[in-house]
Amino acid sequence: MTADGNGTAGDGTAREFRALPGRTEDRREAFSRCLTDVVRLLGLDVPPEPDPTDRRTWERRVRAALRETCRRGVDLSEESFDVLIEAAVHDPDPSFNRQFVEPALSAFGRRRVQAALLGRLRTGTDPERAGAARAWYWSALPVRMPLVRAEDPGAAERAEPDEDADIPAEWREASLREFVGNEHLDVRRCLLPGLPLWKSAHPPELHDLVDAAVRIARSHPDAYIRHRVEHQVGG
């Protein structure tokens, strides 16, 4: 699956994937700090710090080392969960952030990954909210890293919300409220592709917010947002 397809179904299952925009802010330094933690905790055979004159080459080496480690198989510590989520949220690339989401899904479970991203959307900084939306995009992928496991077999159930909670439904409501109420450009750009803008996707009490989201998007000064909303709701 690539970032030039469509998106996820309302129930959180993988169906089609939608294109996502890049960030408008340079967050590469924060991402490098996340990668340093990934290298340290997973024991990747890469220098733990980037060369200040060639940060991108080091990032590519970390990504390649992580792919190879997951291919060979690895048991992830409890601490690794937060480190992988942090890297996924701060990754500036809307395609490659899946490299951090997928091992977390395999080792710790979809519900826990999506609950962590929902928490970032609700309480994070604006760049973290945008990053959580971009990472959520991949959280419905099928689990396909059988050799990536948690050291603790019960890790997937730990720190979960109530088992009756519907995380995808909570995400839809939170993202709708955030899109309407938060004027940050990256947040709106990253939320919109995964935001259902038909009323049947939301309970009746949120229908006015759906109308507001469509109005905001159609009159927005950003060309991407104006184009995206027409693609989603039609003319």
Rank of each mutant, 00 (worst) to 15 (best):
R218T: 11
A88T: 02
L147P: 05
R18E: 08
A165W: 00
S139Y: 00
H202K: 02
I85Y: 00
R67Y: 07
V210H: 01
D75R: 15
A174I: 08
L176Y: 00
R40T: 14
L76A: 05
V62Y: 01
G194N: 08
A140G: 15
L141V: 09
P196S: 10
L206G: 09
G124H: 03
A3V: 15
D45T: 15
L185H: 01
H90S: 10
Q99H: 14
A169P: 06
S77A: 13
D4F: 12
L121D: 00
L147D: 11
F17R: 14
P94F: 01
T53Q: 14
V83A: 08
T36H: 04
G109I: 02
R33W: 04
I225T: 05
T24D: 12
E68K: 15
A169L: 07
G10Q: 09
L195Q: 08
L192P: 01
D186T: 09
M145K: 14
M145T: 13
A165E: 00
D45I: 10
E170G: 05
D91K: 14
A116L: 01
I225M: 04
T125V: 12
A65D: 03
R149Y: 03
R40D: 07
S77F: 01
A130W: 01
A135T: 07
E178H: 13
D152L: 09
R129I: 12
V180T: 07
G235W: 10
H90P: 06
Q232T: 13
S106F: 02
H184S: 15
R15Y: 10
N97C: 12
D208R: 08
G43I: 07
G5S: 13
L42N: 02
D51E: 13
T24R: 15
R189V: 06
A223W: 04
W171M: 09
D126R: 11
L41A: 10
R98H: 08
